[in-house]
Nucleic acid binder design. Structure first.
Length: 590
RNA sequence: GCUCCCAUAGCUUAACGGAUAAAGCAGCGGUCUUCUAAACCGCAGAGUGUUGGUUCGAUUCCAACUGGGAGCGCCA
């Protein structure tokens, strides 16, 4: 099922092709920013008027004559410098609302060519409790996984756990000194973190401690049975604790292949990179350098540098290390092994890395290296997002210990929501109140993160993350609830088939909006920005609330009543589906 | 120093090269005998950091600058 925009786009493109010899310069059709002008507009006449050096209003006149809008819109109006404005015909509108209501997918077409897309998100460290810093990747990645799945892609959600690497030398050493199996089982993160912080402080002051930690790491990497067993224990309990957190968040993965999974592939990767001439020894380590194929400015392996006293700068090497001088491997090595695995094993055509913006340079290098390595057929994309800042506008530092734990954030969200629920619905028992607070609190938390452009940094604030007014999840959930209340009162589970006939401005506006659901999803997927869906749902809910104020449903006469019931039902289903795509639940009452 | 990201109303944000820049919060004033007031209506509030350029048209593209942030060889 096409959206009105797609349908109009196709018709304009057809008319343009008939009129002009120049290649298509679309997309042409977009929603009118101001609905007073119409529902949709095209700038095709202005665009093609320019290339043919003609008066755009004249061109618009020709275009209008050539346009076939039969069955979709009123005759187009020419306005301003040469816009054609379209107003959807009421027949089309009524029919489209009905068709969407009748469609399990609410009119959202799947993609023509499904792809196998690996989405790499969350990626917590198994020795550390999840904190606000993990929130964005987890929430955003989960939403993208849901969106891509809904569009028909073959999604592989993969949690690339930080379960390997230098810090484990420290942790092993610390655990051997004062570890406690019981504490580990009860609170793996708390225990490991305590140990880590303590041993780190010691290591700072004492070279022999640093040396001992390095030794433990080497033992682990060489497969020493004692260290290996300990590490597996850390992993086991940590994953169990993570699992609980993900369950609470409503986030799922298809795989949790952490860094350790790739460990035995790393030596092979390095060997191959050397053989292919992509990597070479440098200062005792193995590093990947520029192949000189890109302009220096665009080459991630070159960096412009001007030393003190030099009058002109020059490009110098900016390599990545894939093997340290002590023989150990780096995360770049793991990332490369992971790319190969995802290609060979999952047959991935695309990989989305939902990772913070500070790692941009790293991914540019990795993607460039992967291409040279022979994986250029894969679309590798860094879905970067901004940093959560502290009150001082500097990133929350994990060292300082003032990181807000995700657990605390969730608890606070539920508690705040619980207080509001208690006020609004004093008749609920404890169990009901807690269950409701969970959905509302978690929804607000997720929505706050998803509703804004992911590239922006933001200052952490309880009030902001847990807002329940305005453009928030509770506002959308409330719109859903109000619709469900109508159906409850009517004694219906959902609307019955009916002839849709929209007449009031409020119901026309709502009906028109309902047809655009798919456009918001396409846009969100195209840009990997779920906030387009948030914007859409907020507008939809706002229009519904207006409709609700002005257009009585149950007390209207039969034909109007059944038409409005259907319109309300489609709104509810669209809200529910849209929120679902964001990982947010709805409730029947709140 | 170089690269990348960011700059829109008091605050937080939106705007897929187009029309009079759109919301939320906060502020002020209204609306519950009628489908849940977690709602709705109204008022007030910016000309998009600066300077140029491209364009019929720029918050959007380009250049320079200012301010903020991040990254730049053996952590991830």
């Amino acid at each position: 099922m096409n959206t009105p925009r797609q349908e109009l786009e196709a018709r304009v493109a057809r008319a343009v092709a008939a009129l002009f010899s120049s290649p298509p310069l679309g997309p042409y059709v977009r929603p009118c920013p101001d609905t007073r002008h119409g529902d949709f507009q095209t700038n095709a006449a202005m665009v093609h008027g320019r290339t043919s050096q003609r008066n755009p209003r004249e061109v618009a006149e020709e275009l209008r004559a050539a346009l076939d809008l039969d069955g979709i819109a009123e005759p187009a109006e020419i306005a301003g410098p040469g816009f054609l404005n379209f107003r959807l015909s009421s027949d089309y509108l009524n029919r489209q609302v009905t068709e969407r209501w009748d469609d399990r997918r609410l009119g959202v077409a799947g993609v023509a060519r499904p792809e196998t897309v690996v989405i790499d998100y969350s990626g917590p460290n198994i020795a550390k409790e999840m904190h606000v810093g993990h929130l964005r990747s987890t929430i955003l990645g989960d939403a993208l996984a849901r969106i891509y799945t809904f569009l028909g892609h073959n999604v592989i959600a993969d949690n690339h756990l930080g379960d390997w690497g230098t810090s484990f030398g420290m942790i092993l050493l610390g655990y051997k000194r004062e570890g406690n199996a019981e504490k580990l089982e009860l609170d793996p993160f708390g225990h490991l973190e305590t140990i880590y912080q303590k041993i780190q402080a010691e290591a700072k002051a004492d070279e022999t401690v640093r040396e001992a930690a390095r030794h433990e790491l080497v033992l682990l990497q060489q497969g020493d049975p004692v260290n290996r067993a300990l590490w597996e224990k850390f992993l086991h309990f940590s994953i169990a604790a993570l699992e609980m957190m993900y369950q609470r968040l409503g986030v799922q993965f298809d795989h949790q292949l952490g860094e350790s999974f790739y460990n035995n592939m790393l030596a092979g990767v390095v060997k191959e990179m050397i053989e292919k001439g992509i990597a070479r020894p440098s200062e005792g380590a193995i590093a990947i350098f520029s192949d000189g194929k890109l302009p220096p400015r665009d080459d991630p392996f070159l960096i412009f540098r001007k030393e003190d006293g030099e009058s002109e700068g020059r490009f110098v090497d900016n390599p990545i290390l894939i093997q340290k001088s002590d023989g150990g491997f780096n995360y770049a090595t793991t990332d490369l092994a992971t790319i190969r695995y995802r290609h060979d094993h999952f047959k991935a055509e695309r990989v989305l890395y939902v990772v913070g913006a500070p790692q941009q340079m790293h991914f540019r290098q990795i993607f460039n290296a992967a291409e040279r390595w022979g994986y250029g057929m894969m679309r590798l994309e860094h879905v970067a997002f901004g940093t959560i800042l502290g009150p001082d506008k500097k990133p929350f530092k994990s060292r300082s210990g003032e990181n807000i734990k995700l657990r605390a954030l969730l608890a606070e969200a539920e508690e705040r929501a619980g207080r509001i629920v208690g006020e609004k619905r004093p008749e609920l028992n404890d169990h009901e109140r807690v269950a409701l607070a969970r959905v509302v609190g978690l929804g607000a938390l997720k929505y706050a993160d998803l509703a804004q452009n992911r590239t922006l940094d933001y200052v952490f604030s309880w009030d902001k993350l847990l807002a329940f007014d305005g453009n928030t999840a509770p506002y959308l959930q409330n719109a859903y609830v109000r619709i469900r209340a109508i159906f409850r009162k009517a004694g219906l589970a959902e609307a019955e088939p009916a002839k849709v006939h929209l007449t009031e401005p409020a119901e026309l506006a709502l009906g028109r909006k309902l047809l655009d659901f798919a456009d918001s999803i396409f846009l969100a997927a195209e840009e990997n920005r779920p906030h387009f869906i948030c914007n859409y749902l907020f507008e939809l809910a706002t229009l519904f609330h207006k409709f609700y104020e002005l257009c009585p449903v149950l007390t209207s006469e039969a034909a109007v009543r059944s038409s409005r019931l259907l319109l309300a039902d489609l709104t509810a289903k669209t809200l529910r589906e849209g929120l679902q795509l964001l990982g947010i639940d709805v409730v029947e009452q709140m």
